[in-house]
Write a protein that binds this DNA or RNA. Structure first.
Lengths: 221, 221
DNA sequence: GCCCTCCAGATTGTCTACAATATTGTTGAC
DNA sequence: GTCAACAATATTGTAGACAATCTGGAGGGC
């Protein structure tokens, strides 16, 4: 097993929430694969914490829909059928669109604009020849800044619960990271210009293109 | 302490998920109030389970945004400011609208139509002189049938995570149950007629009216 | 009278051991 | 050779005890 930054035992004992984020990020970079079982003892060793903390983390992941727990059988990373993936993206389209629109509307009166500008610039800078790890990190920062700028607590809360992570892991969206990065940059720029209509349109189109990708899968499989 | 159906110790030991639902329903009928602390030992006694199960339930509630846990201080039911409430309803408007639209579109090919018809009829029957408990139960069945009819797994998943429960508890929406019931009935009927546009419009208007209620609070407080 | 320190109570965080359950592999009959 | 029953292993579920931390109040110094 490689000793990535996620699994290094040099890192400080992460709390349950920290493990949740680590596992989700592990999904996105391909360290875990959907369907895989997550054994408590294994996670204890990996993160250097007791079973209690691991159980807490698994409970949280279950609520987020990332793992499914069956009694006396433990936890496994969920898999989404192509149809479920399309469902997920339909909802994502709405929420992402609302976030972009709200953010563009509030860009003038916010200190968060700077954060979004930085995240957008970072994505643009990395655009060519970026490692999966770098892309995942930059994208997370972008979405985080976007949610902060939109300044809608419930929206931030829900965006964290959409199961896009599973999709990205399961259907190899990582290959398309170049295209995705440039599309996100376009959205970021429209937001920074304070153009709600265009920001919303571009973000929804981005998600729509993902849906098309999945529809291909549906035919193929 | 009253021995309601929720807290009766005659009920079979609920799992963590069962306690989550019980506590959320307790919120909606006014058994718990936002801001209240939830002490582990108390919940153990009430539900007749060990601390482990209670902790699991609290973890799940935290992820759902219903309680906030501060280290070494335990869990407390969250309170939402009027602004946060409006944020919540903005998102709810989108999701509820999508659910109603999808359900209306799929009403012809589904066995779930019957379930929705029953739930709508039940709400209509109760319309005058219903107890809070009856209303809460009927409404939950309605939303559950709606989500099933919409047949979008991610939408169902997210609808369960919107923090409307907290709003309803905190701002006394229970008083408006008569009006709300009739508005939901109208939405249900449009869905059963297979009219996506009208179903979506009515559902979004329903949520908009709730927003207006909260805006009054914002001025008042 | 006011404030600071310290102690007692209450509550949560964590670890350990054991029980309950599911999975896997083995044996034996047919 | 196939299938069923059974034993062995692995994994999770639960209870108990103890440690760590926070809260609130009493007491003493200024």
């Amino acid at each position: 097993m490689s000793t990535s930054v996620l699994t290094s035992n040099r890192m400080r004992k992460p709390s349950a929430l920290g493990m949740v984020h680590a596992i989700i990020e592990g999904l996105e970079v391909g360290e875990y694969i959907p369907g895989q079982r997550l054994v408590e003892a294994e996670l204890c060793a990996r993160f250097g914490v007791g079973r209690q903390a691991v159980r807490d983390a698994l409970q949280q992941l279950q609520v987020r829909g990332v793992v499914s727990i069956t009694p006396n059988r433990g936890a496994a990373l969920v898999t989404l059928t192509p149809q479920q993936g399309i469902d997920t993206l339909k909802v994502t389209e709405l929420l992402f669109g609302l976030a972009a629109e709200s953010a563009a509307r509030k860009i003038s009166d916010g200190a968060n604009g700077k954060r979004l500008a930085l995240a957008t610039a970072e994505l643009e800078r990395l655009q060519s020849s970026m490692s999966p790890q770098d892309f995942v990190t930059a994208r997370r920062k972008f979405y985080s800044a976007l949610a902060a700028t939109a300044n809608n607590d419930e929206l931030s809360h829900l965006l964290a619960h959409v199961r896009v992570h599973v999709l990205r892991a399961q259907y190899g969206f990582l290959r398309l990271r170049g295209q995705h990065a440039s599309e996100l940059v376009a959205v970021g720029k429209k937001i920074l210009e304070g153009d709600p209509a265009e920001a919303s349109r571009l973000s929804r189109e981005h998600v729509r293109r993902l849906q098309e990708t999945l529809k291909e899968y549906e035919k193929g499989a």
